[in-house]
Nucleic acid binder design. Structure first.
Lengths: 235, 235
DNA sequence: CGTGGCCAAAAAGTCAGACTTTTACATCAC
DNA sequence: GTGATGTAAAAGTCTGACTTTTTGGCCACG
């Protein structure tokens, strides 16, 4: 079973949440707690807890006498990791991936610049190690091993920035990178130029060269955007 | 009354949430649902809903036989608008404000660049109007009126970027700007240079000059960071 | 024909109590 | 000391009754 023991409410949430983010209940739709409770075969108390959580994510609004209304997309807490996961698993995955990659392209260069100033010796070591790992697995269809190092690299950069908001984007970046490898077909070995850029970012951070770290990371990000334009053209 | 009619659970949440984010219950603290229900004089069902919401924000984790554990800060959903508000209202407001301003400095320039490409005629008009409003209220201690235009300006830029993730940061930026005006003492009129920069950003966006819009916005952001360094030095 | 107030029903909100399930911890045998 | 076992504590679940708010219709009155 897929995490059944995590509680009844979590199970219902994992079913209803994706349904809403996928647009199965278009904005404006009205649901009733009692009806939902019956549909999912749980008690009203459990369903109420689920609705409360969805409400806290601004996916729905609950009003007396009218019911539970699905809110327009513009209201959703799109930074909630749970919501991100649900949407990445759903139909508008491509659009979502693009939004997130653009966010990445804005955040990561600045984070790298800060990392160059604040990174500890351990973080520099971890960064270099990850970069070397990427080099070592960049040829011979070792995409899975490469992915591990790639994720580790970007996580360290975000952590080393010393900014809490940046650090919390580590999971999002991991999700994006994993998605690129697993869903969006990636037959070939990773772009050698990108691998080199990662190595050079590690160097720049180690040397405390913030402008260079930022510029190099911007190149990586632009590469990712270009790649996305090719694999999944906008519009 | 301060929004008492929003439901009992919301009231309890507004009391317990800030207490947790303020560190009144340090990470690792264990609470019991029953005890909390008694303390806040609500039924267990209400308290359970509150705990569920806090759990969805990753502020706490609920485990059988042990209770409701407060999670370490690193786990919190720091992008949740509710959490942001709670933290901005609490003791570590300065640190929080810095994190968010750094995030802004990363995001807004890129958003402005995108806005220059995607902004509609209406959005360009709104932008120019806001910039003019800022000019008109930039002298004579009309800080409140200035704030309104400032918020509107940045909101339009983020919206016009066409990126959903950027657009959702409008509230955060509004919160930051409002905080700067209201809390962190701002005796003087706004920096004339900043006002001019806003006007020029509006121009660049209208002309579709993405690099210039980005560069100018980066100047605004750097100004905001410098200002923060003066008013509330780091460390 | 429109306006305003009143009533009734619908749905969420709240509560109390009984029961189940998991699990940390202590105890005991080996 | 190690491992099995039992117990109790806390969350989890369910049910049913009750309260509160709000919508929308209905009717009287201007």
């Amino acid at each position: 079973m897929t995490a059944q023991a995590r509680g009844l409410h979590a199970h219902v949430l994992d079913s209803l949440g994706p349904a809403i983010t996928a647009g199965e209940y278009p904005p404006g739709s009205v649901l009733r707690t009692d009806e939902l409770a019956q549909r999912f075969e749980v008690s009203r108390s459990v369903m109420r807890e689920v609705v409360r959580v969805l409400e806290s994510m601004h996916l729905v609004a609950s009003r007396r006498r009218v019911g539970v209304t699905v809110l327009p997309t513009a209201e959703w807490n799109v930074y909630d990791p749970q919501v991100i996961r649900w949407r990445l698993a759903g139909a508008d995955r491509p659009r979502q991936l693009r939004s997130l990659t653009v966010l990445r392209s804005a955040v990561e260069p600045v984070a790298a610049g800060l990392a160059a100033r604040h990174a500890s010796a351990e973080q520099c070591a971890a960064l270099t190690e990850s970069a070397l790992g990427m080099v070592a697995t960049s040829r011979g269809r070792r995409l899975e091993a490469y992915l591990v190092h790639d994720i580790a690299f970007h996580r360290v950069v975000l952590d080393a920035s010393g900014n809490e908001m940046f650090a919390r984007l580590g999971d999002v970046v991991a999700e994006i990178l994993a998605g690129r490898t697993h869903h969006d077909v990636m037959f070939e070995d990773p772009d050698p130029a990108a691998v080199t850029l990662h190595v050079r970012v590690a160097e720049a951070v180690r040397e405390g060269d913030a402008p260079r770290a930022e510029a190099l990371t911007r190149e990586i990000a632009e590469g990712a955007l270009r790649e996305l334009d090719i694999l999944a053209p906008p519009r």
